[in-house]
Design a binder for these strands. Structure first.
Lengths: 256, 256
DNA sequence: GAGTGGTCTAGACCACGGT
DNA sequence: CCGTGGTCTAGACCACTCT
């Protein structure tokens, strides 16, 4: 029984082109650096217009499979092995969700030297400090500190702060789309204060996540550190397959 | 001095359309859930053909700014706040690069119960074990164990293994494009054996990274655990801006 | 039925690369 | 020079939604 007329029949031409080439790359028939058939050649091969062919190639380019050099052709790209998609939310990780928080402090302070540097502000610019404890099932699981350069309309109302993640805190003053975020993740032993907050009596390490937020112009608009009890924090990341989601719709149709 | 005729003049129409809408979203003029002008309306507004307008919208869709519902329109998407791009390479992290490795063991074994489960193999399928130490400036910084279901052509030659990262190890049997990778990141205290390997005499936690590799069909083709000395491992992640790289070319031209 | 997005065509002109 | 990719047009037909 031939596959012909099965899945690929009702697949739009541009997807068919993209899938065919992708398969050749995945199978190793096309290797990094190799040239793809020219767009005109693909037009003839698939009896398609050039716009349709280019749409298929654009898909592959977006997914990182190929790149193009004007005047020369399309080529298979070297795969990026070191890039993953990490899912991080200070309230919710791979093994744990925060169900209660406790506000330790909300304050407006003048920044110390480290903060001035880190937030790139002047020494008389006021800063909001928010210190919280996160709980799961009654147990403290993380100690969290955030610093935000004070602007009018900033959240200093307790209700607004309690369950807000960092991006949510700044959402009132900037569109979330316009925010650039950075994470630095490391581990260390807790100091005495943190041990007390997190009920740590034995040798238990911390997972530390530093988060920095920048606006569209690259100016820092907030920084925070979350100290997780090591036994309550697992992070999950995966290599991204931006691809093939589009095709599922058609595959499902074909299966029925 | 007006900006008119500056940057945007030589910008391709589809990019101009995309940038204009993106700016409206970033400024908050368009909020998540809001409808964009219809494609035909944009055609009239920009005196452009529909294919050109759709190309601009496709850009925004790829960058996660908008989505479309056939028969209804294009809408601003809710931004994804919990997704980051993580850069991970067992030999090279934010603060440290491995400059020497030591092979502790290369062996072919029969899997124990945990491996059978984790690699989804039968009990008589042989498995390659590779145990290594990573060094920086003469100091041991990580203890690394990998398991690969044995296939013909697998790397059991010492030279091939010494400096290979996990993806590189399986690259001979599968195209790197076709590999799906998963990471689980957590922290724990070292056991006695690991302490010895990593020269740990005081209270120093480990950063542990479990890595699993899958082929295109979802079958596991390898798993590994890397135990980093906590003081030699920082991971870095950032929110992705898939956007605006395309525009830089034009911006640079405009500046000169 | 009018409007929307999804797919596709058959041309066009341009800048660029290699001969 | 010819072939390549990059941009763009002015149409077309379809499936869908809403009224």
């Amino acid at each position: 029984m031939m596959e012909y007329g099965g899945i690929n029949m009702r697949l739009p031409i541009y997807l068919r082109i993209a899938e065919d080439i992708k398969e050749k790359i995945n199978k190793g028939e096309l290797k990094p650096g190799d040239a793809i058939y020219s767009e005109n050649a693909l037009c003839r091969a698939y009896k398609a217009s050039r716009m349709t062919v280019r749409r298929g190639l654009a898909l592959l380019a977006n997914e990182g499979y190929i790149y193009s050099i004007p005047g020369k052709g399309n080529f298979v790209r070297e795969p990026d092995n070191d890039t993953y998609t990490l899912y991080y939310n200070e309230m919710k990780n791979f093994i744990n969700s925060v169900d209660k928080t406790k506000l330790l402090e909300v304050n407006i302070i003048l920044p110390n030297y480290k903060l001035i540097n880190s937030l790139q502000i002047t020494r008389n610019r006021k800063v909001i400090v928010i210190r919280r404890l996160f709980f799961t099932g009654g147990e403290p699981v993380a100690y969290d500190v955030k610093y935000l350069p004070y602007c009018k309309g900033m959240p200093i109302v307790e209700k607004e702060i309690r369950y807000a993640t960092f991006p949510e805190m700044v959402a009132k003053s900037t569109s979330l789309f316009a925010i650039k975020k950075e994470l630095i993740i490391y581990t260390q032993m807790p100091d005495e204060e943190t041990k007390k907050y997190l009920n740590i009596y034995n040798e238990l390490p911390l997972m530390v996540v530093e988060q920095k937020l920048y606006n569209r112009e690259g100016k820092p608009i907030g920084m925070g550190i979350t100290y997780f009890r090591g036994d309550y924090c697992k992070l999950y990341a995966e290599s991204y397959f931006s691809d093939s989601k589009i095709c599922e719709k058609y595959k499902n149709e074909a299966e029925t």
